[in-house]
Amino acid sequence: MLPAIPFNKPYFSGNETRYIEQAVRSGKISGDGMFTQRVHAFFEHQLGFRKALLTTSCTDALEMAALLLNIKPGDEVIMPAFTFVSTANAFVLRGAKVVFADSTALNPNLDAAALEGLVTPRTRVIVPVHYAGIACDMAAVQAVAQRHGLAVVEDAAHAIDSCYRGQPLGSLGTLAAFSFHETKNIISGEGGLLVVNDADLNARAEVIREKGTTRSAFFRGEVDKYGWVDVGSSFLPSDIIAAFLWAQIENLTDIQRQRRAIWQRYYAALEPLRARGIGLPALPNYATNNGHLFYLVCRSLTERTALIIHLRQRDILAVFHYLPLHKSAYYAAQHDGRALPWADHYADCLVRLPLFYELSETAQDRVIAAVLGFYRPH
Rank of each mutant, 00 (worst) to 15 (best):
F219G: 04
F219S: 12
D224S: 13
D224Q: 13
Y226R: 03
Y226I: 06
G227S: 12
V229Y: 08
D230Q: 12
G232H: 02
S234D: 15
S234W: 11
F235M: 09
L236G: 03
S238C: 10
A242E: 00
A243S: 07
L245F: 11
L245R: 02
A247S: 13
Q248I: 08
E250T: 01
N251D: 15
N251E: 13
L252V: 11
D254N: 10
R259A: 10
R260Q: 11
I262R: 06
W263T: 13
R265T: 09
Y267S: 11
A269L: 07
A269S: 15
L270H: 06
L270V: 02
E271W: 10
P272L: 11
L273Y: 01
R274K: 15
A275K: 11
R276G: 00
R276D: 15
G277P: 10
G277R: 09
G279I: 02
P281A: 10
A282M: 12
P284M: 09
P284G: 02
A287G: 12
T288M: 05
T288R: 06
N289D: 15
H292N: 15
H292R: 04
F294V: 01
C298Y: 01
R299C: 05
L301P: 05
L301F: 12
R304C: 05
T305M: 13
L307E: 01
L311S: 01
R312N: 04
R314Q: 09
D315L: 08
A318H: 03
V319N: 13
V319C: 08
L325I: 12
L325Y: 03
